[in-house]
Amino acid sequence: MNSLKAIFGTSVLERIIRLRWWILIFLAIIAFTIFAGDFRQDPTTAILAATLRHSTPLVLGALCGMLCERAGVVNIGIEGQMLMSAFVGFTVTSATSSLYLGVAAGLACGMLMGAALGGLSVSLQGDQIIAGVVLNIFALGLTSFLYTPGETIHSKTPRINFGPLADIPVIGKIFFSNQPITYVSLLLVGVIWYALFKTTWGLRTRAIGEHPSAAETVGVSVAKMRYLNLIIGGGIAGLAGAYLSLEAVGSFERGMTNGKGFVALAVMIFGRWNPIGAWGAALLFGYTNAIQTQFQFRGWLTGHPQLIGMIPFIVTIVVLAGFVGRARPPAALGQPYTRE
């Protein structure tokens, strides 16, 4: 034991002991993946690559929720923000046949929806839960109203070519042959973690989520910061919407978010309001989605697609109840702030 400490240092060892459950889960997942992939390289790689793809909209949605909630504003309108942006992104691409413009329009639409949430919950000091529900109803009603069947786009966002890196076995397929928004989401996890915990902006954001009046006393404008966070968060949710219509599916359907915004909320809480944690939670959820396809491929539980369909949700509940336990949200979450 002591020699181990000498090699790794006390803190690393302690960290490993603290994270023992997560390490065990991780190892179990890898073992099961290889088993499900029939001990062959290609299917195993395919499962892991699909995991990353499935996790993308969830981690983006969770980052949106996190920026809002760290600043003290509950956002249950993520679903609506994603849906609206998916629609706007798709429509713009369909009209201009430019994917860049489409993604940009999705991003802008998300930011606008974020600003709308800010208007309702910060300026008008309305109830935040209701404001979120209002966004969801509006998005569902408006996109169904404006949707015209039969519109198409020519291609989805293209894979980025990393040349020789993409040829590395296993790793290359998983990490070096994805589409752009997937990479942006990975980048954002790191950027937002750094921004939240290492910058003045992050400190202020967390301060107004925990104790807004104290932050105001030292000169932080609660309203301005909340707006800023809601708009940035909305933009990230907009990216998630653009991912759905332009990167994953390549078309728009009524209600195509199908609860992903709510699952993203779950992912955020699961990850304890921390970007890295949320990324892990999104990967776990993405993995359970990816493994479904493999189940069908291997012919396990054939004829019972509904039972396979339950796997992601049951795994989430079991892991949450079994390993994660209580999580503490920001203290001032959900309360409109009025200056005294």
Partner: peptide, 27 residues
């Protein structure tokens, strides 16, 4: 029960159980 005994957030578990119920009912 999950909230009271294990501290699992009800927002997550109720959302997940919606999906489980839909699949279970169809099955």
């Amino acid at each position: 029960v999950l909230k009271a005994t294990r501290g699992a957030h009800e927002v997550i578990t109720t959302i997940m159980l919606n999906f489980v119920a839909a699949n279970m009912a169809e099955w």
